[in-house]
Write a protein that binds this DNA or RNA. Structure first.
Lengths: 346, 346
DNA sequence: TTGTAGGCGTTATCAG
DNA sequence: CTGATAACGCCTACAA
């Protein structure tokens, strides 16, 4: 008995297209996946049927049969601000050039959520993953190894981690910036760090400040160190606390630009002159940093290079090609007006 | 002949779990999807096997067999700045509460790319879609209707469009803001609009300015109207052009906060006092607007309500429940310091 | 160049 | 409560 004609409002399948074009399903499949193997005449009539029916292949069935999904995943801590957006965009663009689509998830800086999302993305067919930073449950790493899902760690570079990564040295970048601050005569420094317990980048940046102090003859234990989530309001509050001290710092380093933006706003609210009374620095060089006034000096992170490089690395890995492990990129200091000489210089 | 033991490094399947637990695949499937239908004893041994093997279900196979993907999609114009991030986050959170995962794509404000992405997301199993604005190729709409994919249009509300939407009236919101500007004595107004040809929100906002002028006894044709992509540098350039006129405006309205941020920076660069010499307004109320100094007065868009509402609407639609069509939310003016009385007030 | 047919990993409908 | 078994939509040798 011949198949019934497709119901008026049913989603068309390969079968429907084949029937309408008067060919086999194999031919339709080839038209879509390897057009050069099909005669122009057949191809035209098949494509006409495809368009008439509004056919689109079923992803699940395709992945199941072909054993490949052409899908990678990325998990970033947040999409609320621009910190990772630029790199993600570059990642996506490069993947697109290789015919790979992207699945995104955001973990809200919560390791437990990230662990769930790693499993969810893999279950959803992500053949490779972009991850931010090294800090995560060993079980997550074990899971990825067992499933043989290639992954690349970005936004950080820890020599000898043994994991594929493409990033920059957060410690060194922050040490460089701190060195410049000290060179301007600042002696009383404060750092509003990100949450270090769950964030290796935040930890590394704090380490960088201490290293630079030690290297420049200052006592790292004199650092006024406080911690805040990566939000402007938290940065503002922390800045207020720090400046309320009996002997306030002359320079406040911030764990990232978002915290620094909050600090700067708070400085304005307190009637402080920046950088006359106090200097403020950021980290990441998101667009915001150049729009504030005074502009935020910061560390320009190689957003796009990391995204693009991560994509290439994963594509190579998935094709069995060896990919460069532990690629280190450089982060450059960007000077802007909210960093000036110490008011009570040497 | 019994099946061979699974290869050391193969991805475990239901079959493998079943074999290891000594039950059928049906039972394993039930343990995962309807645990209450399985005896506690069996369940325990099955779950032990699941964990031992690191099993995770294959999404494609599951979607194929169950005919549902539990996946929705969203296509936004950009992820580079925060304009849509907040709403997207709320959308995702609400979907998560319903057990639905989210597929995101960004179209770079390009309608042609958006059309491709609509097809790609549907092919990838998106059972419903969130879209921004009404402007798009009729073919895209036809495709969605034919495939019976529910969609909701956000960020805009055009009465009588006949499409399911949840948003606010861009025209009215901009008219309200313009009315306030005029009430402060401004008579020479400029508008740096977004790209109107492909963006109904940009068009509506420009219309709103004209309406408010007419309603307040000004001639809309006196509006100094220019257009710029939604980027700070483009906003800065446009602002420079506008202020270089023989008779510059006393207030520059901007199509969104990103343009306005560029305009504000350019004003500083030109040594203009804001709002003493010229007032500047934005639109969207992204975080940035409150961090700049002077702060940007803007229209606070109901980001989270739109995201959450869109999620609920789509979940309802997918469950065959009727969903409110054309929901209108309100957008509120947020006052900040870069809007002041006209310098040459009446 | 085209068609045939087997199988991918799950779910769901039946019996037992 | 559990086990066979037939789909699900597509890809891909293999044959013709």
């Amino acid at each position: 008995m011949p198949d019934a004609p497709p119901h008026e409002n049913a989603i068309p399948t390969l079968q429907d297209v084949a029937r309408r074009a008067g060919v086999s399903t194999a031919t339709v499949s080839r038209c879509l996946n390897a057009p050069q193997q099909v005669s122009a005449k057949t191809r035209d009539s098949v494509m006409a049927a495809v368009n008439a029916l509004g056919y689109a292949p079923n992803f699940g069935a395709r992945a199941l049969a072909a054993k490949r999904t052409n899908t990678f995943g990325a998990i970033v801590p947040t999409m609320r601000n621009a910190i990772f957006a630029e790199g993600l965009q570059a990642f996506q663009e490069e993947l697109g050039a290789h015919g790979v689509t992207l699945l995104v998830a955001s973990s809200s800086y919560r390791p437990d959520l990230e662990a769930d999302q790693i499993r969810a993305l893999v279950a959803r067919g992500a053949a490779a993953l972009l991850l931010i930073g090294h800090d995560r449950d060993p079980e997550s790493y074990a899971f990825l190894e067992k499933r043989q899902v290639p992954y690349v760690i970005t936004w950080a570079h820890n020599k000898g981690s043994g994991k594929t990564s493409i990033g920059f040295d957060n410690t060194r970048a922050m040490a460089d910036l701190t060195g410049e601050v000290i060179a301007l005569g600042h002696r009383r420094l404060a750092l509003i760090a990100g949450e270090r317990s769950t964030n290796d980048r935040a930890r590394d940046r704090a380490t960088g400040v201490a290293q630079a102090m030690a290297a420049n003859g200052l006592d790292p234990s004199d650092l006024i160190l406080t911690e805040a989530p990566y939000r402007p309001d938290a940065g503002a509050a922390a800045f207020g606390d720090v400046m309320a001290r009996l002997v306030p710092p002359t320079a406040v380093l911030c764990g990232n630009d978002v915290i620094a933006a909050g600090a700067l706003r708070q400085a304005h609210a307190m009637g402080l002159d920046v950088p006359g009374d106090v200097s403020i620095t950021g980290f990441d060089n998101i667009e915001l940093a150049g729009l504030l006034s005074p502009g935020l000096p910061t560390v320009a992170v190689p957003h796009r290079d990391m995204g693009r490089g991560a994509a290439r690395t994963l594509v190579d890995l998935c094709n069995g090609r060896p990919a460069g492990r532990e690629i280190e990129l450089t982060a450059q200091i960007t000077w802007r007006a909210s960093l000036g000489p110490a008011p009570d210089g040497p």
